[in-house]
Amino acid sequence: MIEITTTRHNHLIDPSLHIWGWEIPVYLFLGGMVAGMMLISGYFLFSGRYKETNCSCYYLPIMSFLLLSLGMFALFLDLEHKPYVWRLYTTFQITSPMSWGSWILVLVYPILFASMLMRPHRLLLEKIPHVKKWHEYLHSKPMLIKYLGVVSMFFGAAIGMYTGVLLSSLGARPLWSSSILWLLFLVSGLSSAAAFVHLIAKNVYERELLAKSDNAFLILELFIITVFLIGLSSNSDVHAKALDLLMTGKYAAVFWVFVIGMGIVIPLFIQLLAVNHKIHHTPIAPIMVIIGGLILRFVIVAAGQYSHWYVLTN
């Protein structure tokens, strides 16, 4: 038996680290979903299929803008020293993923605005002459749309990866010490974004297309999760102990039931039936995927904070 006693009982630190509550998981989820949305809309812009993929190319930038802003607001709420938030933008810290992230987010907004110019709201077109001018300019240059697609994909991927790298760079938390957490969050973001289109797209072709892609993303996600788990278990004892939190420990029930079961496997099963026309499309499946993606962030953030280099006692 190892018996550890300590006089320390710092708020948010003891008995186990819990500095991040709901704000960071929400931010990571929304960031990931926006990343997915930018990748999807960017891809369609790049491939010139923006006419068929109405929803992806016209609604997603607006949704991205809203969700990203919501996510950043959550992030802002999490900051403990709010009046100093501007300090993020008086410096660039090359080693800090958070510094990278805050600059990337700033660069993402112009891309989203440009994407929105593909089909601005009627009121904007009528009221603001510049919007109309730029809108027409964009549509007069197909190559520009292609570039916009590429840039959108590039920054989408950057955000998606960043949400994972942000955690995995924090080596003090063994659960996050995985070289593929960025990929997991990226793919999970993609699947949530695809599920979102699947949910709201009116165009049958687009809906089908995104449902199919979502299935692919979900399968890929399962694969990545497997690699993630195996990776941790074959790392050091400390990492294996951290993994136990998800496999059998404190967070296992939520992880297996809500993330794997209801967030991936069941909706995947439903959607596979739907795309093979065995059943009708149902909004339940994509909703489950989106909620599953959110819970994934909650579980990873919470369990990761709980995981520790010290041998966990009791």
């Binding site: 320390r8 900051l79 403990e80 020293h81 100093y84 300090r87 993020l88 942000l166 760079s169």
Partner: peptide
């Protein structure tokens, strides 16, 4: 006066 309270440093410290 430069700290924004993002807590990344706290999460990064193996000694808490």
């Amino acid at each position: 006066n430069e700290c924004i309270g993002c807590k990344a440093c706290i999460a990064s410290c193996p000694y808490d």
